[in-house]
Amino acid sequence: MAMLDIEGLHVAVGGKEIIRGLDLAVEAGEVHAIMGPNGSGKSTLAHVLAGREDYEVTAGRVRFLGQDLLELEPEERAALGLFLAMQYPVEIPGVSNTYFLRQAVNALRKARGEPEMKPAEFMKRLREAARQVGIREELLRRDLNAGFSGGEKKRNEILQLAMLEPKLAILDETDSGLDIDALKAVAAAVNALRTPERAFLLITHYQRLLNFIVPDRVHVMVDGRIVRSGGKDLALELEERGYEPFLQEAA
């Protein structure tokens, strides 16, 4: 059975159906990319998988590592190994980046029945991860995402990914708003985190991220459904022809 298995998913937001019958299976170690125009429901999918409460699942089921994902609270999903790197990470002034990460790491360990990480070991790992992701130490002491630039926020999400060691990482438009250097750096950090056990779901509007993180599968999402799936070449086809032909197919 696949690590993530979505069948016939329907999701409504504020009474309006956004996802309209979506199927997707992701195996451990795979990198999948979901591409689609604005309003196709990509980000809604990411948030539903992470457990946003104001999104209503009207039909379908989602299994993650054999469990019914939709039954779980957001923190239980995180404990199970699901991670969402957000397009707009929330700013929390008053709580330092380091403090927050330590709480998160220990919350996950506790949920898995593991002992808390010793402060010294935590700091050592944090510094390593920060170096790997390319985050200045000063940023670790600052308040969580507060006053971070767009690029810093995205990198900070990848830092969390590195520290929380999820089994499935969903990257929601992590490439948006990044210049080419920042994009390359983020991609390099993600590539370094690829392992045979870990799967990635990249959600993106543009093909350029996929030049740097090469996916195993590419899915085109239009109007709340996956209308085409293929290998990495599908992304190139999209780059050339745009979404227009798919929109027509969907209509």
Binding site: G51, E75, A78, M86, Q103, A104, L164
Partner: peptide, 8 residues
Amino acid sequence: FYLRTRGL
């Protein structure tokens, strides 16, 4: 939501 997706 953000904090909870991180396991809190």
